[in-house]
């Protein structure tokens, strides 16, 4: 009796093999839909991404919302920490993959990155539409796990510790995304209560807070929101990395005079020239 082969269990993907090659798919189905036979040419990228994660066809408002989220965060700009990391790959002549991997590392963090989106998703689950709960959690934000691979949080997630007031692009994004959503959703709630929440957090709303509300309205899990935020921010990192690769390191900041060593022992004493000669 031959031993049964180990398989990958999946809800997402089904394949039928070509008659002449068991390692090549003749047809591939995503949650039951024929990807190359039907979806290609018929669905938008946002609809397909939604299908991959939710396993169902989105409502028109859901695909519009996801598409607008993708546009809003596709390029945080060359001052953003994740894009800067990618550009360091570009200027040094590193591989394309390493530029994207470089973007993912800071882009994953609790300071403006995907882990912050994860944290806000958890707050939505814990606080819902209870303003007092939000105020309590934001005024005294505590990490859920005492010991984890992530560094401890230094500000209430979803809000900008270095902000003076809510920035125009954050407000524009919030307004637009809210206009796409049902009136009883997280985005609508955030739009209505933004100022009260900012007061509790003692800093203005950040893009991570807006995007987490959008993912909450899309009924994404915290894990889905975290990974989609990472994925959807890569286009800008990629484009800026390639641009800096062309421009070269001479045109890229090195912060030559920006570093102060606070414990510099100074140059080592030079050997006496005469002694050295002897």
């Amino acid at each position: 009796m031959t031993k049964e082969k180990e398989c990958i269990t999946t809800n997402i993907w089904h394949e039928e093999a070509e008659a002449d090659n068991p390692f090549a798919a003749k047809a591939a189905y995503c949650s039951g839909y024929d990807v190359y036979g039907e979806l290609l040419g018929k669905v938008s990228w946002a609809e397909y991404i939604y299908l991959l994660f939710k396993l169902e066809k989105p409502q028109p408002w859901q695909s519009s919302l996801l598409e607008s989220v993708a546009v809003a965060i596709a390029n945080p700009g060359p001052r953003d920490l994740s894009v800067r990391a990618a550009m360091n790959g570009g200027v040094g002549g590193s591989t394309a993959a390493s530029c994207l991997m470089a973007a993912l590392a800071p882009g994953a963090g609790k300071n403006g990155g995907a882990r912050e989106v994860y944290q806000v998703m958890r707050l939505w689950q814990q606080c819902g539409f209870e303003l007092s709960q939000w105020q309590q959690h934001l005024a005294n934000y505590q990490d859920e796990q005492a010991v984890e691979v992530w560094p401890a949080s230094e500000h209430p997630p979803g809000f900008d510790p270095y902000g003076a007031s809510c920035t125009t692009p954050v407000l524009q994004t919030l307004d637009h995304l809210t206009s796409l959503c049902p009136e009883e959703g997280a985005l609508a709630y955030l739009s209505e209560h933004r100022q009260q929440l900012e007061k509790a957090a003692d800093c203005p709303l950040a893009m991570t807070g807006v995007i987490a509300a959008a993912f909450t309205d899309l009924q994404m899990t915290e894990d889905q929101a975290e990974i989609l935020f990472l994925l959807l921010r890569l286009p800008g990192a990629a484009a800026h990395a390639l641009e800096q690769k062309k421009l070269g390191w001479r045109n890229y900041p090195f912060f030559g005079d920006g570093l102060t060593l606070t414990n510099d022992p100074g140059p080592a004493p030079k050997e006496d020239n005469l002694q050295g000669a002897l």
Binding site: I8, N11, Y29, Y33
Partner: peptide
């Protein structure tokens, strides 16, 4: 460790039209 198509144990939705 190459995997043939049969190594996917699909437990999702039946085939359907968009």
């Amino acid at each position: 460790f190459p995997l043939g198509c049969e190594r996917l144990d699909y437990i999702g939705q039946e085939k359907r039209d968009w």
